[in-house]
Design a protein around this nucleic acid. Sequence first.
DNA 1: ATACTACATTCACAATTTGGAATAAGGTCA
DNA 2: TGACCTTATTCCAAATTGTGAATGTAGTAT
Lengths: 139, 139
Amino acid sequence: MTSIDNRQIREAASIARAISHPVRLQILNELRGEGAYVMHLTAVLGRPQANISQHLMVLREAGLVTAIRDGMTVLYQISDPQVLNIVDDLLALAQKRIESRGLAAGEMESKQGGRRRRRGKCRCPRCSQEDRSGRHGRG
Amino acid sequence: MTSIDNRQIREAASIARAISHPVRLQILNELRGEGAYVMHLTAVLGRPQANISQHLMVLREAGLVTAIRDGMTVLYQISDPQVLNIVDDLLALAQKRIESRGLAAGEMESKQGGRRRRRGKCRCPRCSQEDRSGRHGRG
DNA sequence: ATACTACATTCACAATTTGGAATAAGGTCA
DNA sequence: TGACCTTATTCCAAATTGTGAATGTAGTAT
C-alpha cells in the first residue's frame, strides 16, 4: 500500500524545488558520472562564480549534492543516484514536449545556439587531465 | 548523442517548478489512475477551494494536467504518464531520506497525524458512486 | 427569472527567491 | 610573510510566488 504522509510530500516537494531552476538543473546534469569541480561548472555554464556557488549551496542544503575539498578546488558530486533518475525523467518529458510542440508549430530545430553554449576551456583538474590524455565527453 | 540544449533545460526546470509545491505534489498524487474532481481534491487535501483552483491553474499552465468539464464538475487528469514517473521518483527519494534520517536521528514514526489528514467524505461523482456501489467508472 | 452548486479568476500583500557586487574564507606557492 | 587562486558568504534590490478574500463564470434546478 502506498500511503503518503505529509512529511514525505514535503520532502519530495523540497527536492523538486531545489531542482527547479535552470542553472541548478544544468549543474546536476554536469555532475553525472564522477562529478565536477566548481571552476568547471563556472566555465561550462558561463555564469559568475558567485552565482554558481549560490546555486551549489541550494543543492547542498537540499542534500542533492556533496562537496569534497581537494586542495584548492572542490569536487561536487551527486549524493544519490536516484537524483539522476529525477533529472532524467524531467529531461525526457521536456524533450518529448519540445518535439511534439515542434511538430505542431513548425518550430523545427535549425537555429544556431541562441545564447552562448559552452564556455570552452576550463582548467579544473579533470579537464586538464582529459586535455592531455585526449579523452572527451563524459560518462 | 544526448546533447542537452537550453530549451530542454528550461522546459524541464519549469516542469519541476510546477511540481515543487506540497499541495501541487499532493494533487498530482491524487490524480493517479482516472483523475479526480476539484471538489474531491478540495475535500481530500482540506484546503480552500480557491487555493486548490489556483494550484490547478499552475499545473494546467505547466501542461501537467488537463481539465474536462462534466456538467457542473470538472475532472482533472494527468496529461502524460511520464509525469507520474517524476512524482514517483521524487516520492521514492523522499521516502529513502526520511527513513535514513529516522535511523540516524532516532526520529521513529510515533506521531499521530500532525495535521489533518483526510477530510473523509466528499460528494464528487466518483466518490458518491463508489460509496453506494463499490467500483465503477464514470458515466 | 432566482437560487444554488462547482469552479475560476482577480486583487493585495506577505514571504520567498534570485543574482550582482563586494567581501570573506581557505588553500597554495614563491 | 604576501601574492594569488578557488570557493563561500553576505548584503540588498528586484522579481517571483503563495494565500486569503472577494468576485466572476458556468451549469443545474425550481
